[in-house]
């Protein structure tokens, strides 16, 4: 593999754009626009098409990172963005009312893609809520018949984002070995 396309999805405000900005070697491409609904209480802008960033791994492989819009009304973009993708990172915002239900929503909507690829779950905004526990995330994944790595991450930290990407690539390499 010389070029890898990875997708980052998750709820609005989970940190998809921030994660890509934290790790991209080039200025990230963004499609932010003003929020006009309830989300405006939390953030001024939201991604409506995609984010894009790129990085080079130690072995020279290029990783292209595509961030999706979070809202379900942009589901058509999810289907476009996963085309040619090799792995998925799902960011779950623990400050939201029901993070496990949020995880369910992405597992359901990306089911076809998940079926053919690897997934890593990043649990964000832990500083605002210590629940659900990581065990509860693993149990929920198990209920879906899935075993994926789950990490508590601060997406502002390059090392945390790098950890998720490394884990995802290891998962993919293991699956193809």
């Amino acid at each position: 593999m010389s070029e890898i396309k990875l997708i980052i999805t998750g709820t609005p405000g989970a940190g998809k754009t921030t994660a890509i900005a934290a790790i991209s070697e080039t200025p990230p491409v963004r499609t932010d626009t003003a929020t006009t609904d309830d989300l405006a209480e939390v953030k001024d802008v939201t991604t409506v098409a995609m984010d894009f960033g790129e990085l080079t791994l130690d072995d020279g492989q290029k990783v292209f990172l595509y961030g999706t819009p979070g809202q379900q009304r942009f589901e058509f973009m999810w289907k476009i963005l996963v085309q040619g993708g090799l792995g998925l990172i799902i960011l779950v915002d623990c400050s939201r009312p029901d993070p496990l239900a949020d995880l369910d929503m992405y597992l359901e909507n990306f089911a076809d893609f998940i079926h053919q690829t690897g997934v890593v779950v990043g649990v964000t905004r832990r500083d605002q809520s210590a629940t659900p526990s990581l065990d509860e995330f693993y149990e929920r994944l198990e209920a879906w018949g899935r075993v994926f790595p789950v990490f508590e991450v601060d997406v502002r930290q390059k090392d945390d984002v790098s950890l998720m990407i490394s884990a995802l690539i290891s998962t993919l390499e293991f699956a193809t070995a």
């Binding site: 499609t31 932010d32 626009t33 003003a34 929020t35 006009t36 609904d37 989300l39 939201t46 409506v48 098409a49 995609m50 819009p69 809202q71 009304r73 942009f74 058509f76 973009m77």
Partner: peptide, 29 residues
């Protein structure tokens, strides 16, 4: 700009909510 349908006039049946989200994406792109 963030993809919500506000008002419309259609002579044909079209999915306005979906189109509103798509127009937001295409303009941002």
């Amino acid at each position: 700009v963030d993809g919500h349908d506000v008002t419309r006039k259609f002579k044909r049946d079209m999915p306005s909510a979906k189109l509103a989200a798509m127009f937001s994406s295409v303009l941002a792109l």
